[in-house]
Write a protein that binds this DNA or RNA. Sequence first.
DNA 1: GTGGTCTAGACCACA
DNA 2: GTGGTCTAGACCACG
Lengths: 76, 76, 76, 76
Amino acid sequence: MTLDPDISTPLWRQLVDVLVARIEDGTYRKGGRLPSEVSLQQEFGVARGTVRHALQHLVAEGIAETTNGKGTYVKP
Amino acid sequence: MTLDPDISTPLWRQLVDVLVARIEDGTYRKGGRLPSEVSLQQEFGVARGTVRHALQHLVAEGIAETTNGKGTYVKP
Amino acid sequence: MTLDPDISTPLWRQLVDVLVARIEDGTYRKGGRLPSEVSLQQEFGVARGTVRHALQHLVAEGIAETTNGKGTYVKP
Amino acid sequence: MTLDPDISTPLWRQLVDVLVARIEDGTYRKGGRLPSEVSLQQEFGVARGTVRHALQHLVAEGIAETTNGKGTYVKP
DNA sequence: GTGGTCTAGACCACA
DNA sequence: GTGGTCTAGACCACG
């Protein structure tokens, strides 16, 4: 899975879309843990800040919840 | 009694404040023993490392004293 | 350089001794930066917590100084 | 699985025998990790000192190897 | 890409 | 059954 650096949509937003899609199709289960920031960084080939931005967006939207030292979880 | 994971103050520092307050109001008496690390861990819902960090801070400030195998005591 | 897991001296204390020795023999210069926590972790084959414990000991003794996001420096 | 507190063989030695048997029959694989001290303590209903004594015996005999913070492993 | 905080859980040493 | 050490690996804040 790779993102497209050329189109106008910001990378972090493309990433949000991918993550939301994966939550909806069950790749990431509700109540389950998302991959770590480093994993996502590597999988999508983006900077860590981008990953953090995307995850914080999910948290702000109430889709996910993050716990220090444990990871980011999909809300049920 | 619970700590607040949202505000910027580190959990261990919040814990220090609570312990100091309890020493000052007499909940933990001078010369008496503080609850064990495991007790505090359970009461405040944090990891043992966080509890230890807070207790070591009290020791560094000369407020408490710790003895291996016995516990942590409030200095008179 | 490796540490000895068998003897009773804690690993973090052995690490303190090595770092102090390197400061004294000029391997790490006064005013210069120490290797990052991750580097030391790899060089000595210990966990990052152990490295941090050793570095914080140097800071507590006034031998080094640490700046968030930049590194740990030997005091002149 | 329970041990027999009545017979003259010390509990820790009975425990050693059980562990060795389990290594030989493959319940605990060579190179694999033994259950934690607390697990064994609960499974066999013995004190922690007994478990530690038995494990240290395995280590002394070169059957197992223990690493602080990780567990006790069966040597290949 | 550094240091800072935190979690979870193991074994170690003391009493 | 306490505190002491250690591992492994996560997210956070700074630069």
